[in-house]
C-alpha cells in the first residue's frame, strides 16, 4: 500500500491552486460573484472556476444572509461534497446577522451550523476583499490550517444538535416529503 502522506504537500499545493467554487449564490452577495469571474477581476488566474455541481467543488462561498430555508440547502450541499472542502463566509450577515440582527428568519451565526474557514467583513465586500480572503484561504490550505471539514467530522454531534434545534428534528425527511400532499391534492383536482 502506498503511503499517501508523502504526497500530501503536492496535494495541498494542487488544492490551493485549483479551488472550484459551487455556484450557490445566497442573498445579495450573489451579485458580487460574476464580477469576480469576468474580465476585470479574473479569478480564473488562480485556477478558480465556478462549477454547478455540489459533488466537485472545494470552496463554498456563503454570499450573504442565510434564512432557515436556505440553510437546509446549504447543509445538504455542504454534506454532498467529498472531503477537503472549505467555506468562505462573505459579507457581514453570516458573521453576526448584519443588518438582519433582529429578523426572525435570518441566521445570526453561520458558524453554529457549518464550519467556516475564512470570514470577510463588508456589506458588500469589494471584489478585492474577496480576493484577499481567498488568498488568506490559500495560505491556510498550504499550512494545513483550513480544517473546517475536519472540524465538522469531529464535532458532528454539536453541529447536528444546533441544526436540529433550529430546524426541528428530522427536517431532512420533512423537507423531502413536503410537496407530496400538495401533489396528491393536485392529482385529485385534475382527476375530477
Amino acid at each position: 500500500m502506498v503511503d499517501w502522506r508523502l504526497f500530501e504537500p503536492l496535494f495541498n499545493w494542487a488544492r490551493k491552486k485549483s479551488l472550484w467554487i459551487v455556484s450557490f449564490c445566497t442573498g445579495c452577495g450573489g451579485i458580487e460573484m460574476p464580477p469576480l469571474m469576468t474580465a476585470r477581476y479574473d479569478l480564473e488566474r488562480f485556477g478558480i472556476m465556478p462549477d454547478p455541481s455540489p459533488r466537485q467543488y472545494d470552496l463554498f462561498l456563503i454570499t450573504g444572509y442565510v434564512t432557515p430555508k436556505t440553510l437546509k440547502r446549504i447543509i445538504i450541499t455542504y454534506e454532498m461534497a467529498p472531503d477537503p472542502k472549505y467555506v468562505l463566509a462573505h459579507g457581514s450577515c453570516p458573521i453576526n446577522g448584519g443588518i438582519y440582527w433582529d429578523a426572525y428568519n435570518a441566521i445570526k451565526r453561520l458558524d453554529l451550523y457549518i464550519p467556516v474557514d475564512v470570514y470577510i467583513a463588508g456589506c458588500m465586500p469589494r471584489p478585492e476583499a474577496v480576493m484577499d480572503g481567498i488568498k488568506k484561504l490559500m495560505e491556510m490550505i498550504e499550512n494545513g490550517e483550513a480544517d473546517g471539514w475536519k472540524r465538522y467530522k469531529e464535532n458532528y454531534e454539536w453541529y447536528r444538535k444546533n441544526q436540529d434545534e433550529l430546524l426541528g428534528e428530522g427536517w431532512r425527511e420533512k423537507e423531502a416529503r413536503k410537496w407530496i400532499p400538495w401533489l396528491m391534492d393536485k392529482k385529485k383536482e385534475e382527476g375530477t
Partner: peptide, 22 residues
Amino acid sequence: HRRIGPPIYQPIIDTIKFFGKR
C-alpha cells in the same frame, strides 16, 4: 473574453486535486 485566464497546465493541477480527495 479579455481575461488573463489560468496557467496552461491548470487541468493537470485540477486532476491532481481530484485524485487527492479524501
